[in-house]
Design a protein around this nucleic acid. Structure first.
Lengths: 231, 231
DNA sequence: GTCTATAGCAGGATAGAC
DNA sequence: GTCTATCCTGCTATAGAC
């Protein structure tokens, strides 16, 4: 068995660090280390591509210790995915703050668009997305729940704010949820699609992504803005 | 070992049935049957989730026969993915035909938008997409090439036609490739994202998808149309 | 709770007969 | 080219000592 390097003891035991974390009894130290190791390996090699032996080795515990904390490999996997349900919370907050009472709506949308892309094409977020999609056949409930709790939460928050802006006549929006989808996919579509198929190394430059973010907002405002600002 | 049902002898030996098919020597019958079986299983259960035993059983050949036709499991997988590079050809042709000299541009775009969604959320196309993304880590070159040859071909064809329409002053387009991305993701974003996370059964209704297609085109034309047609 | 050791089986790939 | 039989490795999960 290959000897794996010691796990970097970063603080990620419970990614959803805000929200009312009512996660049963406080797990012992080793459980956290195991989850950390398993997260790394599942994200890198997928569910079937990761063995419990590897997880134990990376966590520097025996395989049996893994099985005392988690009933089986499936449960460990599910718990890891559920532990990431809060992953978009920071960005959701940013949406609410930035669009609550914007002085310059176009500037606020462009800022959010850039941050939206940055949040989503972050390697961990990308690999998590790939993983959940890859295992949607094996874990259909988990995939559906993840979708509702993470990406759809962002869309819902956007829809909320767009509706408020429409109420104040700062946007012309009929269907706020639809408009939120249009914003999201104008902004994310290109970068996210490319990122899903490419390895981490071959991402577009930040400058390029920012130009795409701005262009997406221009299109969004052409359709939904109150004053057409295109040349 | 579970006895699998006989493969439905449909015609899919070489999905890219048009294009200059220069696929070395004409393979023997069994190779086609094996690829057909392997395609079914890879799409359903993923690369690691599919065993060569299962493929052989579904193809009704012995495992050794699989290995006489394909060097190993990886090569069989790669050949199957490459066999799907022509998957978008029909839609690409439709783009060229429909936007070549449209009498009613809005109607043509809405027709294409509906067909675009239908093409992409088709179960086989969806599972293939999931599969390629899931294995992007294990087969990075294959994933990149697939992306260039299939989804990006569609975008490129769209960009071409949008540029021609812009030359004829039927659209206002600066960057045709960017505009094509905007069209693509306004149309596909919502449905495709939902489909990637959900099982086949829980797709939105066709009527719903058509309304989304129309709404996406409305937004596209608000930004890129020559006469703003929104109320 | 943690370890070492192992059961029990399925995986990819090959040998050798026909 | 196709088969049956087999090798050997690696997998999930458990037993049993401490």
């Amino acid at each position: 068995m290959e000897r794996l390097p010691a796990p970097s003891r970063t603080t990620m035991t419970t990614p959803a660090s805000h929200a009312p974390v009512r996660r049963r009894a406080p797990r012992l130290a080793s459980a956290g280390v195991i989850m950390e190791a398993a997260t790394t390996l599942f994200l890198r090699n997928g569910y079937l591509g990761t063995s419990v032996d590897e997880i134990a080795a990376l966590a520097r515990v025996s395989k049996q210790t893994v099985y005392t904390h988690f009933a089986d490999k499936e449960q460990l996997f599910a718990e890891i995915i559920r532990g990431n349900f809060g992953r978009a919370d920071d960005f959701v907050r940013a949406v609410r703050v930035e669009l609550h009472d914007p002085h310059d709506l176009e500037a606020s949308l462009k800022l959010l668009a850039r941050r939206y892309i940055a949040t989503v094409v972050q390697p961990d977020a990308l690999h998590l997305r790939r993983l959940v999609i890859a295992e949607a056949g094996r874990f259909p409930d988990l995939a559906r729940t993840y979708h509702e709790r993470v990406p759809q939460q962002v869309i819902a928050a956007l829809a909320n704010q767009l509706q408020q802006l429409a109420d104040r006549r700062l946007l012309r929006v009929d269907d706020a949820l639809l408009a939120a989808h249009h914003f999201a996919w104008l902004v994310l579509g290109g970068p996210l699609d490319a990122a899903m198929f490419h390895s981490d190394a071959e991402m577009p430059s930040s400058a390029d992504l920012e130009r795409q973010a701005d262009a997406a907002v221009d299109v969004f405002l052409a359709a939904y803005g109150t004053r057409s600002a295109r040349s």
